[in-house]
């Protein structure tokens, strides 16, 4: 296991590449999901307001 993590002494370069990529991909996915969620929240709120106005 230690041998695998050491990457023949090149661990800072190899893991520095792979982990930064994994981290930023996670950020990208979370960002899209967050944008979608907040937008859906807005649409739901507007729908509720509209429904209330129709009742009155």
């Amino acid at each position: 296991m230690m041998e695998f993590l050491a990457m023949g002494g090149y661990w800072p370069y190899v893991w520095g590449s792979y982990l930064v990529m994994a981290g930023l991909i996670a950020v990208e996915m979370v960002q899209v999901r967050y944008r979608r969620r907040s937008l859906m929240g807005w649409i739901r709120r507007m729908a509720r307001i509209r429904a209330q106005e129709e009742k009155q």
Partner: peptide
């Protein structure tokens, strides 16, 4: 290049 070449798989 030893193990450093493994960066190719994402580069």
């Amino acid at each position: 290049q030893g193990d450093s070449y493994r960066i190719i798989y994402i580069h």
